[in-house]
Simulated assay, not measured.
Amino acid sequence: MFEYVLLFVIGSVLGSFYNVLIYRIPRGMSIIRPGSSCPKCGSSIKFYDNIPIISYLILRGRCRYCGEKISLRYPVVEFLSGALACLSYYKWGATFEAFVYFVFFSLLLILSFIDWQTFTLPDSLTLGGLAFGLITSFFRHDLRFPESLLGSLLGGGLFLAIYLFYVKVRKMEGLGFGDVKLMAFIGSVGGPWAVIFSVSLGSILGLLYAIPIILKHRSFDFVIPYGPFLSLGAFLGLVFKDYLLSIF
């Protein structure tokens, strides 16, 4: 129990940093300086007001100085990051693979929130993640470099073909080029199976989300980010891989 508590604390602290990335990277801001401050009044956030999850609850989700409402995203990301740390340890133990998957899931978490808010997937994270996946495959036991390379080519190549079809044939952008790089990243860490899970489960989840919107507005004229659903599909597929493969 102590190990899981410690991992959750470490994960939630990292989640606090993930919130910095989610807010600053799309805005082109430095992720190091200046320190955290209230977006409305500019007051610096003291260390005791920056304790993951706890500070949000104590402050009741508002800035101590101006009372501006603090987005619920902050404690949610911190909680999810702590949960991912525990999950990675529970499923893969104290192994290098657990570290790889925790980093992988963390990047997917960050990318999902950025994409949901801005409809962008920063190259620094997708291409950085792709390099991470390919490099770490040399040291893993569950996925070798050829599988990592194949996964990245399959994921990136499939979505590149879809992207080019929409742009060249239908003269419209059916999906963003960031999704191409995201799928290459997913394939580099999870291999071909991760690509399959990401596309299949992600499409189902995206459809389930879109159906109520379609029924409510009786129109297909709306846009939703695809990245969060692809990421969630990859996450669910890799965590429940053995169970899903046993079904099919």
Rank of each mutant, 00 (worst) to 15 (best):
R33E: 14
K91S: 05
P52Y: 04
M29Y: 15
S36A: 07
R62S: 12
L134V: 14
C41G: 13
R24Y: 05
C66G: 13
A83E: 04
S112I: 04
C86D: 00
Y101F: 14
G93H: 11
K91M: 12
M29S: 06
S112T: 13
S71P: 06
D123I: 04
F99A: 10
P34R: 05
V103N: 09
G35Q: 01
R62N: 13
L107K: 08
R64P: 00
R33P: 03
F138A: 10
Y56H: 04
S71Y: 10
S36M: 11
Y48T: 15
L59D: 10
V76T: 11
I32M: 14
Y48H: 07
C63N: 01
A94Q: 03
L57N: 02
G35Y: 13
R62L: 05
W92F: 15
F105Q: 02
F138L: 14
F47D: 07
L125A: 01
T136G: 01
I22A: 08
L125D: 09
V103L: 14
C63L: 00
A85V: 10
L80T: 03
A94F: 09
L84I: 09
C38L: 07
A83L: 15
L84F: 15
G93T: 05
C66A: 13
V76Q: 04
I110T: 08
C38I: 06
K40P: 05
I45H: 02
G93E: 11
V76K: 01
G128K: 12
Y101C: 00
A131P: 07
L80A: 02
C66V: 01
F119V: 10
P52R: 03
L21E: 03
I70R: 00
P122K: 01
I31A: 05
A85K: 00
C38A: 13
S81G: 12
L125K: 04
V100W: 13
L80C: 04
L108G: 03
V76C: 02
L87H: 02
Q117A: 03
